[in-house]
Design a binder for these strands. Structure first.
Lengths: 256, 256
DNA sequence: TAGTGGTCTAGACCACGGC
DNA sequence: CCGTGGTCTAGACCACTAC
């Protein structure tokens, strides 16, 4: 019987319960495929309401640590949790997430007329201009990718003054403009490195590469950034976790 | 003021509310960045409890259709919902999802000693044997990928008798063995088509291709299938939606 | 029948934002 | 200050599973 729950201090009860259950599972108190004590028992034992325990358990189900079966119980999944889901991450965050030190070399930074693709992606009006930020990205002095970001000048007017090549662009957007990126849509294709890409990435010509096209949005759906990147294929791979889908909430008219 | 909610018939109230709100948003009753009526008002207007409305709204937030701000309200996101998240999908489901007809050509189907990689991925004991299913996958008679699936013989002993090359393998696993796949872990790399791959996929040699390595699990974490696939790069691309991460529930000892 | 998870109620209080 | 969403309670009933 471990520590009591703290009521009224910062952390909500359900998050404390969630953390405690996660700790116990990772410590091996419960084994995979074994049932957790029932919600009623956990609630009684911890002195909280059943709804509060449910909230904790639901979160742990969503990340695949538990699964519930009506009428049977809640069970421990044996899924290894080292592999996380992919999220919206800046290059800097992603590098640090696997223990490397990120930095970047600026190739160019200018204000331009957007390409038609960028204009459409950022929903720009005729005549709107964009910042175009062209960089090579490194992890521990190893070149990993070439990135070309476009952002509307109107969204971050003095970006050229405040931009620091060694700070995450996303941090600057949050700090100075209150722009929080919530969702990224990406398309991933494969290609071959052309001469310039091969030189910048220090790989042979024609080497296979990943081609990313990403558009990032604020919570309300306004597009912020349109990025096209080339990642070297010999030093970069994508790790993903996918879960079985729930039924879509979209109407039939949206199914082509 | 539309239809009333149906109490006590199949669908839970919160799902009916969720569907109704989704319909209204897609019909343009509410515009992006506009606030939804407050939870209290929706609850009063629909004659249900606040918790029930919250449950509906929470689901819509999770798919990016709404977002909530404490103290301010709940707002409509302008994110286009045609682009869905990626899930665990069979090749057949994926093909049908974008309107193509899937089928496959069997190259070989045998019982073998697993490779060391497969043995580790499926947590097999020494001496365990696997089914090895080698196929070319087509969408509308266009070859898309070469797939090599391995499944433990002990998990689906008479697979060779019941397998039908034109039915989804996943459906058979569910039908005959009650095996439901819940989670897939995948690693995506790039490569160049070798001679045999180029021939089977009808692309030039050295063409860039996607290399997928996937392991699929049941809910309880038991591995079921280990797959290595080669997808042609000129006819296949990956579309993804990523969301900003919530804080991890893992302890510090798991951060490398 | 007993025990489980799933849904739902009618409140309560808190934290936060804007006025 | 008020209105908002976020958390929490102490129950209730239902649906499902197992015995």
């Amino acid at each position: 019987m471990p520590l009591p729950l703290h009521r009224g201090n910062g952390l909500p009860l359900y998050q404390q319960i969630q953390q405690r259950l996660a700790d116990q599972i990772q410590a091996g108190v419960f084994k995979p495929s074994e049932p957790l004590p029932s919600i009623q028992k956990i609630a009684a034992q911890m002195g909280v309401s059943q709804m509060t325990v449910r909230q904790a358990i639901k979160s742990l189900c969503e990340i695949g640590m538990l699964y519930s079966r009506q009428g049977k119980g809640t069970f421990i999944s044996g899924i290894k949790l080292e592999k996380e889901f992919r999220h919206v991450l800046s290059f800097s965050e992603e590098a640090r997430a696997h223990g490397a030190t990120p930095h970047s070399r600026l190739l160019s930074f200018s204000i331009q007329k957007p390409s038609e693709e960028t204009r459409a992606a950022l929903a720009l009006a005729d005549g709107d201009r964009v910042f175009r930020l062209h960089r090579v990205r490194y992890e521990d002095s190893l070149p990993i990718s070439i990135e070309c970001s476009c952002l509307a000048v109107s969204a971050c007017p003095d970006l050229m003054e405040i931009f620091d090549p060694d700070t995450s662009l996303y941090e600057r957007l949050a700090d100075h403009y209150g722009i929080q990126l919530a969702i990224t849509e990406e398309v991933i294709e494969v290609g071959k490195a052309n001469m310039e890409e091969a030189r910048l990435l220090q790989v042979p010509r024609q080497s296979p590469v990943f081609l990313f096209t990403r558009v990032s949005f604020r919570e309300d759906g306004r597009p912020v950034e349109h990025v096209k990147s080339t990642y070297r294929g010999d030093r970069y791979k994508i790790v993903n976790r996918l879960m079985r889908t729930r039924r879509s909430v979209l109407g039939a008219s949206h199914i082509l």
